[in-house]
Design a binder for these strands. Sequence first.
RNA 1: GGAGCCAUCGCCAAGUUGGUAAGGCCGUAGAUUGCAAAUCUGCUAUUCACCAGUUCGAGUCUGGUUGGCUCCUCCA
Length: 466
Amino acid sequence: MHIYDSVQKKKLPFEPIRANEASIYVCGPTVYDDAHLGHARSSLAFDLLSRTLKAHGYAVTMGKNFTDIDDKIIKKVEATGKSIEELTSFYITRYLEEMAALGIQRADIEPKATESLDAIEAMIQKLIDKDYAYVISTGDVYFDTAKDAHYGEISARVAEDEESQSRVEHTSEKRNPKDFALWKACKGEEDICFDAAFSRGRPGWHIECSAMIEKHFTGDTDYSIDIHGGGADLLFPHHENEAAQSRCATGHALAKYWMHNGFVQIDGEKMSKSLGNSFFLKDALKLYDGEVLRYYLNSVHYRNDFNFSEEELHLSKKRLDKLYRLKKRVSPGKASLPNKNFKKALLDAMGDDLNISIALSHIDEMIAKTNDALDANPKDKALKKETLANIDFIDELLGFGGKEPFSYFQIGVDTALKEQIESLIAQRLEAKKAKDFARSDAIRDEITALGINIMDTADGTLWEKA
RNA sequence: GGAGCCAUCGCCAAGUUGGUAAGGCCGUAGAUUGCAAAUCUGCUAUUCACCAGUUCGAGUCUGGUUGGCUCCUCCA
């Protein structure tokens, strides 16, 4: 299996620290607001990575944090009058629910910053002791980038360029403009802060991840974890700083491989709060089924930017529908074993840095071939069982196709409507039997007007929501 | 101003070490159907933003041009 390392900028064979094991840590959200499609894409990308590694036989340990202490959270606390606990646990719960709707498997370790303060304080203290960090008069603690010879290697940033044209304003007693805060001392008495040896305050953003990884993963190996993931915007400064802290504190590298997912864009621009073009996941899930969203958001390679459009989403659903129509055709029944070649083709495609496009094309090919064979021999039981197993495997590896096929096509149809449809179909059948095609077509129009498509098959009339 | 990514059919989108353009949607012709729908089959880029170069051979390598995006501030 190969993955693309965004530090070395090339595809590398995946050789984990420990044979047959894979540890992944992904930067999770700062929980001060609802998740948007961009969060979904990142989660989806690393869910796919985790599933792929598992299918390739690795025992995966996935860690994903929640940043639950931060300026933005504090602002929101002040604005809403809610407690920080109340606020963050609300968004964490919602985040987990929404991700579950997308079929994302829960991480094995889900640390929160506020529950990792001991590890954070310990790591900062270690950096101070080793003289990689310094405390200024306000009590803030900064990382001294000049002391780290390897600083800049993660994001491949030239050391000289930052000063003159940087958009960052530097004030304070920082020794170097690139130095970043490990700990921010509290300023007012009302501030939300915690006691630490160096000052009363709260952790900087970057140190959290390093400390949590250190706490939950690190052993006495050359790297703390195998793969560190996150959005492409985290490469600098977040991951650069994480790597520096961990390297200097622990004496070994943070991650063996770094993977970054591309952005979700709206009309060709990055979706972000500041541009005001965010599409919240909760709103998307009101309009579309989570599985359809998952299929759509995963249909483009994780490293590419993803231009979201509702039109494309609908087209994408058509492709998923075909899989479920096939499933309908081979259901109900018991799955046997997936076709060996098919399974291998999917594993190979996904094993090549998650080449989802190739995987999907194999699925489409399998669908066409199976339909063809079923047209020729509708009672091929062995094929039906194998097909069910193929679809089970798709669900395991890619996370779609797992629903009961009849219910998939009835999402959003209530019981009353369902009864109405079935009654109309029965009436139409009567008309057809009497060869009263004018009437049967009129009934079909009536059904269509309800937003339902029907199709006559050898097994009777089937219907699905348009 | 600095750093990087990207540009493939009407649309979405693959394309390891250069070897003669996957797949899906749409469209179209046909099989099937009372008609549809669904399903299947055929057709649909001599060409990969543009220019020049290396090569027997380039979408794939090199240089340049144009256009788009991202990072350098919180950000998935």
